[in-house]
């Protein structure tokens, strides 16, 4: 079985599992949690393209998510755009912004890149709060219309679930494809040795900006979907904390692993639900998870599983 055949089987199995899950879930509460897992998976996969593949950190991805949500919200509520058109407009708009700021930002490395993306995220967050006439300020923006497709209106938990997951699965599929292509290899090459990648003819600077743009664009798409399914948005969802949460999802799942990002997103979405009893403990646990995973399991959960499987295989052979 070749690698690409295996990829197809894994993806098909995963997709089927996603499609039948709502039939097994009881109650709207859980369904809603799974809608969030879908959105977070999309975001984590998008960030993983940048962080896991190209090795470039962003602590401002919540800003792209928020920009997608707000542009969609403003265009539909104020300018009577069709929600689908608003979504396309938001994604393109954010893509252009990311492309423009990508050049100066991705010239920076390591800690400086982290700080610059963080700064960008905070500036955008402040703008969400302060441009009250546009965004409704800290108290948020409501009345964003649902998406609809012919007779189907995506306004119930069930319809939202399928809407979100179709986009999430598509994102995952395209990312898996990208990972096993010339571009994916070039990105991983940048991660491992930038100088060698350049010497081999990879236009490092341009490729970093391109993947940053794609990553921002997917995040904006997730933002639009979020706005149109929740119909209400407020700046608090798009702050620094959420950017860090996204990074945590990617790290926990495993840098460079698409299914790992799903795992990370699922764990971080479910954790606060389980921990509701322990109110507010989640933030402490994120912190601990980040430190412990980075020190002891740099490959994330998926990396850990792979190492375990390899160890078992070796023992079998021996």
């Amino acid at each position: 079985m070749t690698k690409s055949q295996r990829d197809i089987i894994i993806f098909t199995a995963f997709g089927l599992a996603v499609m039948i899950t709502p039939l097994l879930l009881r109650g709207n509460y859980l369904l809603n949690v799974f809608v969030f897992i879908g959105i977070n998976t999309m975001l984590a996969v998008a960030l993983n393209l940048l962080l896991g593949f190209a090795g470039q950190i962003s602590l401002g991805h919540a800003a792209f998510f928020g920009l997608g949500a707000y542009i969609s919200g403003i265009l539909t509520t104020r300018y009577a755009f069709d929600p689908w058109m608003a979504m396309v407009a938001a994604a393109l708009c954010v893509g252009v912004i990311a492309f423009i700021i990508g050049f100066p930002i991705l010239k920076l490395k390591g800690h400086y890149l982290a700080m610059a993306t963080l700064g960008f995220g905070i500036i955008v967050y402040i703008i969400f709060n302060e441009t009250v006439d546009w965004t409704g300020g800290p108290s948020g923006m409501s009345g964003i219309p649902n998406l609809s497709l012919g007779p189907i209106i995506f306004d119930s938990y069930m319809t939202n679930y399928y809407l979100i997951w179709v986009f999430t699965l598509l994102t995952m599929l395209l990312s898996v494809n990208l990972a096993n292509s010339r571009i994916g290899r070039a990105l991983r090459a940048i991660h491992d040795s930038e100088v060698a990648a350049r010497v081999m003819g990879v236009n490092v600077r341009l490729l970093k900006v391109q993947i940053f743009t794609v990553s921002a664009l997917i995040s904006a798409l997730a933002g639009s979907l979020y706005a149109h399914t929740m119909t209400f948005i407020a700046p608090a969802s798009f702050g620094f904390n959420f950017s860090v949460e996204l990074v945590t999802m990617v790290i926990i799942g495993g840098l460079g692993s698409i299914y790992g990002s799903f795992l990370g997103a699922a764990i971080l979405t479910l954790l606060p639900e389980f921990l509701r009893v322990f109110h507010d403990f989640d933030i402490v646990i994120y912190g601990l998870l980040l430190i412990v995973m980075t020190i002891f399991m740099p490959g994330g959960l998926i990396g850990g599983f792979e190492a375990l499987a390899a160890a078992i295989n070796r023992r079998k052979e021996a």
């Binding site: 402490v284 994120y286 912190g287 430190i291």
Partner: peptide
Amino acid sequence: LSLVIITIGASILIRG
């Protein structure tokens, strides 16, 4: 990258 993540982790932990 790991150092950025570790120190962010520590910052969240202390804050929490």
